[in-house]
């Protein structure tokens, strides 16, 4: 039973990791590519970390929670790096996919560099 739960969690994690990288590989345009890895990878690694936590808790007989530190750290840092990368792309003027709809008022600024 314990092995089945563990296997399912590991496979889900690996699958979402793969989906993130597939998104990185095949989506057109930088802004769309940003969606693949930063999302799916976070859930993928999160599930693998839960599996690891369960495994070591059962194996050693004492609660193993330090995996959640990595999960916590990734959940805090992943949005920050995604935000910074898309901000860089906006300011450099990275090319968008042609069919991108744009609902930004043009009154804002070129000087929000901070």
């Amino acid at each position: 039973m314990f092995e089945i739960v563990l296997s399912v969690l590991i496979l889900i994690g690996a699958f979402f990791t793969l989906v993130g990288s597939i998104g990185l590989y095949k989506l057109p345009g930088f802004y769309m590519r940003l969606h693949g890895p930063t999302k799916a990878t976070t859930l993928g690694v999160g599930t693998i970390l839960i599996a690891s936590s369960i495994y070591f808790t059962v194996k050693t007989g004492s609660l193993s929670l330090h995996e959640f530190l990595i999960a916590l750290f990734l959940f805090i840092t992943a949005p920050v790096s995604a935000h910074l990368m898309s901000k860089v792309a906006l300011h450099i003027g990275t090319k968008r996919v042609d069919r991108t709809q744009d609902y930004i008022d043009k009154k804002d600024d070129k000087d929000s560099l901070d």
Binding site: H35, K39, P79, A82, H83, S86, K87, D105
Partner: peptide
């Protein structure tokens, strides 16, 4: 902004200088 980036399908891209508008990119709008 972090919450918007964490939920798939949306990424918060930029905050205007006056902190009044958040620019969000949607994967499928």
């Amino acid at each position: 902004a972090n919450t918007i980036s964490l939920t798939p399908g949306t990424v918060s891209c930029d905050l205007t200088v006056d902190r009044k508008q958040l620019i969000v990119h949607f994967l499928d709008l």
